[in-house]
Design a protein around this nucleic acid. Structure first.
Length: 418
RNA sequence: GUGGGCGUAGCUCAGCUGGUAGAGCACUCGGUUGUGGUCCGAGAUGUCGCGGGUUCGAGCCCCGUCGCUCACCCCA
């Protein structure tokens, strides 16, 4: 009987050794600035009630209308695998009354997200994001700090070929005024049916169309930034000022469009230049109406999500990954069956002192075991056999130069320290 | 959902106008008693993505199908 192989589902990205080490490093670099700024972990479910995203992310978005993994669970409830992080954080904050305490609520998260799209370079059906949310305070200084934290994460990776684009989507009043004029403009254009339908749902979407004829038609369209209310305008001016003071470089993109409906006011995107079509490595913004829409108080919020997969691709493109495989301090080779138990004991004892120790398994030749030790990148190798057990001493071989010294087994950890 | 490209050993690929598979790397063992990286030798591994067709004969041609990939769309 021969069994067929089972492949991974379409579009998932897996990180196996040795690449997984780089992935882990990238993820930690991206989120560490948030931890140092007082953000705390929220570990949330990867599936939620479908209505959370319908309402939170928005019925007009592509994410909700055609990219969600939605299914019915055994109790007949409609469940959706989370396509983004903000809605879930907000739900948990409301549900646990975190917004009744000290504000802003500052949370960070990390994990898998899911969108049922056709996969391509940098776009996967299961992808990884780290992100933060700061909820309950509307202060341009907070906006600037949130953006700076994201920027710091990318700088930690050593990235240079990216730019930060910022804009303001204004408050409700600003957007309503703009929408009237924008629709007037769009209605006068000669558009195909699908495009017109998209414009009805969210006219801003047309700013993001890549077709040349649409691009040129939209070049004369009224710009939201010109409709900002006094409040929104001065808020945005201060954000820019703080960012400049912080030394965070940015460019204004008056035509930025975000695919999630909840964004208001300050909105930003990190775009990397060496990545091909999927060039957004992170993005975020204010979402001042979201909490209320989800049944909570009318509090403001701001946050970002950074794509770990894409940040890794960017680091590879810019060649900024630190070259390091896993290397242990000591590799122990037992000389045959009789010494395996003894080798395990020495390994366990040496690990107690904080060193990483590997043991050669199987019944390979000494030469084969040495080869394995070499490939493992171990700094030192010790062969354990009859004479070692009798003398209580091992020849500790330094792999870099082949030299060896005699060490008492009980004092191995002291030598490894050096 | 729509298009383009590609599917040959674990990996990267070669395979001339159709004559039933190869290289490099990696892997295992060995080059005499318990010491790696170089070198030398030996060895294992493929229903050439799958199904059908044309042909005396197909990895090479035709059709279908599945998968991967890039792009549109959208976004991390």
């Amino acid at each position: 009987m021969k069994f067929e192989k089972i492949a991974a589902p379409k579009g998932v990205r897996e990180y196996l050794p040795p690449e997984s080490q780089a992935f882990e490093w990238v993820r930690e670099q991206l989120i560490s600035p948030a931890k140092r700024a007082g953000y705390q972990l929220m570990e949330l479910p990867v599936f939620e009630d479908t209505s959370l995203f319908n309402r939170g992310v928005g019925e007009s978005t592509d994410v909700v209308t055609k990219e969600m993994y939605t299914f019915e669970d055994r109790g007949g409830r409609s469940i959706t695998l989370r396509p983004e992080g903000t809605a879930g954080v907000m739900r948990a904050v409301i549900e646990s009354n975190l917004d009744r305490g000290q504000l802003p609520v500052k949370a960070w998260y990390s994990g898998q997200f899911f969108r049922a799209e056709r996969p391509q370079a940098g776009r996967y059906r299961q992808f990884y994001q780290v992100g933060i949310e700061a909820i309950g305070i509307d202060d341009p200084a907070l906006d600037a700090e949130v953006i700076a934290i994201a920027d710091r994460g990318f700088k930690n990776l050593g990235l240079k070929n990216y730019r930060l684009e910022i804009t303001s989507l204004g408050d409700a009043q600003s957007r309503a005024a703009h929408r009237v004029d924008l629709m007037k403009f769009i209605n006068a254009l000669d558009l195909d049916e699908a495009t017109r339908a998209r414009a009805e749902l969210n006219p801003l979407r047309l700013f993001d169309d890549k077709r040349p004829e649409i691009k040129s038609a939209m070049s004369a369209a009224p710009i939201l930034m010109d409709y900002l209310s006094d409040y929104s305008r001065s808020h945005f001016e201060k954000v820019k000022e703080y960012l400049t003071d912080l030394g965070v470089a940015f460019v204004i993109n008056k035509r930025m469009v975000r695919g999630l409906d909840y964004y208001t006011g300050t909105t930003f995107e990190f775009v990397h230049e060496d990545l091909g079509a999927q060039s957004g490595i992170g993005g975020g913004g204010r979402y001042d109406g979201l909490m209320e829409v989800l049944g909570g108080q009318a509090l403001s919020g701001i946050g970002f999500g950074l794509g770990v997969d894409r940040a890794l691709l960017a680091a590879i493109a810019e060649n900024t990954l630190p070259v390091q495989g896993f290397t242990s301090d000591l590799f122990i080779i037992p000389m045959g069956e009789d010494f395996k138990g003894y080798a395990l004991k020495i390994a366990a004892a040496t690990r107690e002192s904080g060193h990483s120790v590997e043991v050669a398994f199987g019944d390979r030749s000494l030469k084969g075991a040495m080869k394995a030790a070499d490939k493992s990148g171990a700094r030192f190798v010790a062969v354990i056999g009859e004479s070692e057990r009798e003398s209580g001493t091992v020849e500790l071989k330094r792999m870099s130069d082949g030299s060896s010294i005699s060490v008492k087994i009980g004092e191995l950890h002291k030598v490894l320290e050096a």
